[in-house]
Amino acid sequence: MTTEPSDVVETPAGSPIESAVAELDGLATLPVEDHPAVFEGIHRVLRDQLAGTPGAHA
Protein backbone atom coordinates (compact mmCIF):
# COMPACT_ATOMS: atom_id res chain seq x y z
CA MET A 1 0.00 0.00 0.00
CA THR A 2 1.37 3.39 -0.93
CA THR A 3 0.59 6.63 0.80
CA GLU A 4 -0.85 9.30 -1.45
CA PRO A 5 -0.08 12.92 -0.56
CA SER A 6 -3.75 13.46 0.29
CA ASP A 7 -3.45 10.74 2.96
CA VAL A 8 -0.73 12.60 4.87
CA VAL A 9 -1.93 14.51 7.92
CA GLU A 10 0.08 17.57 8.82
CA THR A 11 0.70 18.17 12.51
CA PRO A 12 1.01 21.71 13.83
CA ALA A 13 4.52 22.94 14.53
CA GLY A 14 5.38 22.30 18.14
CA SER A 15 2.73 19.62 18.53
CA PRO A 16 3.43 16.72 20.91
CA ILE A 17 3.67 14.38 17.91
CA GLU A 18 6.18 16.57 16.11
CA SER A 19 8.23 16.95 19.28
CA ALA A 20 8.20 13.22 19.96
CA VAL A 21 9.28 12.31 16.43
CA ALA A 22 12.00 14.98 16.57
CA GLU A 23 13.53 13.05 19.47
CA LEU A 24 14.58 10.42 16.93
CA ASP A 25 17.17 12.88 15.64
CA GLY A 26 19.03 12.65 18.93
CA LEU A 27 19.47 8.88 18.83
CA ALA A 28 22.79 9.13 17.00
CA THR A 29 24.33 10.93 19.96
CA LEU A 30 23.05 8.47 22.58
CA PRO A 31 24.47 5.10 23.54
CA VAL A 32 22.47 2.24 22.04
CA GLU A 33 21.42 1.07 25.51
CA ASP A 34 19.54 4.38 25.93
CA HIS A 35 17.53 3.97 22.72
CA PRO A 36 14.73 1.81 24.22
CA ALA A 37 13.81 4.54 26.72
CA VAL A 38 13.59 7.07 23.88
CA PHE A 39 11.45 4.72 21.80
CA GLU A 40 9.16 4.03 24.76
CA GLY A 41 8.69 7.75 25.39
CA ILE A 42 7.88 8.41 21.74
CA HIS A 43 5.50 5.47 21.67
CA ARG A 44 3.73 6.76 24.80
CA VAL A 45 3.18 10.20 23.24
CA LEU A 46 1.92 8.76 19.95
CA ARG A 47 -0.37 6.28 21.74
CA ASP A 48 -1.79 9.01 23.97
CA GLN A 49 -2.41 11.29 21.00
CA LEU A 50 -4.19 8.54 19.09
CA ALA A 51 -6.28 7.69 22.15
CA GLY A 52 -7.24 11.32 22.58
CA THR A 53 -5.61 11.60 25.98
CA PRO A 54 -2.61 13.88 25.46
CA GLY A 55 -0.26 13.81 28.42
CA ALA A 56 -1.85 10.76 30.04
CA HIS A 57 0.68 8.12 30.99
CA ALA A 58 -0.23 4.53 31.72
Rank of each mutant, 00 (worst) to 15 (best):
R44P: 03
A56I: 04
L50E: 06
S15P: 00
V21T: 04
H43T: 10
P31I: 03
G41Y: 08
T29E: 12
T2A: 12
D7C: 03
E23R: 05
E40M: 11
V38S: 09
S19F: 07
A56K: 03
E23G: 07
T53E: 11
D48V: 06
T11G: 13
F39G: 02
E4I: 08
P54W: 08
A37N: 03
M1F: 15
P36R: 03
G26P: 00
D7Y: 09
L30Y: 12
S15V: 02
H43M: 07
H35D: 02
P16K: 01
Q49P: 03
A20W: 03
S6Y: 08
T2N: 07
P12A: 15
G41V: 04
G26T: 01
M1C: 13
V9S: 14
G41I: 01
T3M: 05
L30S: 01
A22K: 05
R44V: 06
M1W: 13
A56Q: 06
V32W: 14
V38M: 11
T53N: 13
V9F: 12
E18D: 06
G26Y: 05
D25L: 08
D7G: 12
A13M: 05
E4Q: 13
L24P: 04
S15Y: 03
I17N: 06
A58F: 05
L27K: 00
V9N: 03
S19Y: 03
D34K: 10
A22R: 03
L50D: 06
S19R: 07
D48M: 14
P12V: 08
E4F: 13
E23W: 08
L46N: 05
R44Q: 14
R47D: 14
P12H: 06
D7F: 10
D7M: 10
D25A: 15
G14E: 02
S19K: 10
E18P: 00
T53G: 09
L50T: 04
A28D: 09
Q49K: 08
E4C: 11
S6R: 05
D34N: 11
E4L: 15
T11N: 11
F39Y: 15
S19V: 04
